[in-house]
Design a protein around this nucleic acid. Structure first.
Lengths: 185, 185
DNA sequence: TGGAACATGTAAGGGGTTACATGATTCA
DNA sequence: TGAATCATGTAACCCCTTACATGTTCCA
């Protein structure tokens, strides 16, 4: 039940249409959640039927026209309840370590190359996040909202750095084994 | 499509029944994937119908009796294909940073306490993983399978350490704000 | 005016979560 | 023999993913 609350948060930060929300999920919210436009439109419909959000007056009723939404008081109250809820951490879910473990049984194949590729993709993402940080938080943030958004961004940065560190070690140890000629790359 | 392959891996490592698999998922495989017994039984049925696994001869046909499965050649081949597949990294999905971001808009409430609670839970899990490491890998592992399993475990350890580091920083910065009296705890 | 890009929406299929059900085993 | 536990299994619901569909706006 995180998507509706992520949408409520985004709409409180700034009233938006479905396509704008999709773009914002690809960017700042995407550090820890992703959503396709289909999910977002379906969820917007649900939230509107539940009277937690409404379309801004003057919204076009037809298909293909932008429809802007804003959060109603009931929506904000629901979000407060969600923030204050006690909820245990979920186990991370990532196929790559699983594939590595499978490779321990059936052989490495080209998996070390795949690990290198992932390491490089994470490096790219890390660089992108660091660029966001330089651009959006050049100085100590003033408001609580900015400080919290910065914290979340640094969570994304730490996460990417962690992956890179682990993948580097894995590539290092496994390429020794694969080649017998010492680490590559 | 990771669960069936996680099950194939586990069964190759050691033929097991559904309940045994459930316990093994709670332990070593669970660093990066979790599954309930319902998921596992459903998936075992699918894998058996697809003739990727079979019940060991002498398995009891009735309900309530243990049924041990082993992997067939086709199952191993499917696992090899999965390991060699090229698949991009997924975005992490975690509600806690989202809740933090929501708190930036609607107010912190008791969220800092919740962050402390999560930090402590991650500390417990980290300690548990480190205990596994001490117990299961006291010396340099000899086989590829052991080295890979150790790498996966260290991935879990790194991940937990990353969470603890981030949560500590978040608690530190936000408790200053919440109290105005400097960091607590 | 016609094609490309944009915006919203529908539908199908699969995985995950939760609640519940049934047979077997164990043991007081 | 009856309750507790174990092992397997069924069912319902919701979210996520992918493919596809329809209307609008922009612009060469």
């Amino acid at each position: 039940m995180s998507l509706p609350h992520a949408i409520l948060t985004a709409l409180l930060e700034k009233p938006s249409s479905g396509s704008e929300l999709t773009r914002r999920f690809d960017r700042s919210i995407g550090y820890f959640w992703s959503a396709t436009h289909q999910q977002i439109y379906r969820e917007l419909g649900k939230l509107e039927r539940a009277e937690l959000i409404r379309t801004l007056p003057g919204g076009a009723p037809t298909r293909g026209q932008k429809k802007e939404y804003e959060v109603l008081a009931a929506g904000r109250e629901e979000l407060v309840r969600w923030v204050d809820r006690r909820e245990d951490p979920k186990v991370a879910r990532d196929p790559l370590p699983l594939r590595l473990r499978a490779a321990g049984v059936v052989g490495l194949g080209d998996l070390v190359d795949e690990l290198r590729r992932h390491r490089d993709l994470h490096r790219d993402r890390l660089e992108e996040y660091r660029e966001f940080e330089r651009r959006d938080y050049p100085a100590e943030p003033a408001t609580r909202q900015e400080r919290v958004q910065w914290l979340v961004l640094r969570g994304g940065i730490d996460m990417e750095a962690g992956w890179i560190s682990w993948l580097t070690r894995a590539v290092d140890e496994l390429s020794e084994e694969a080649s017998g000629r010492g680490p590559r790359s």
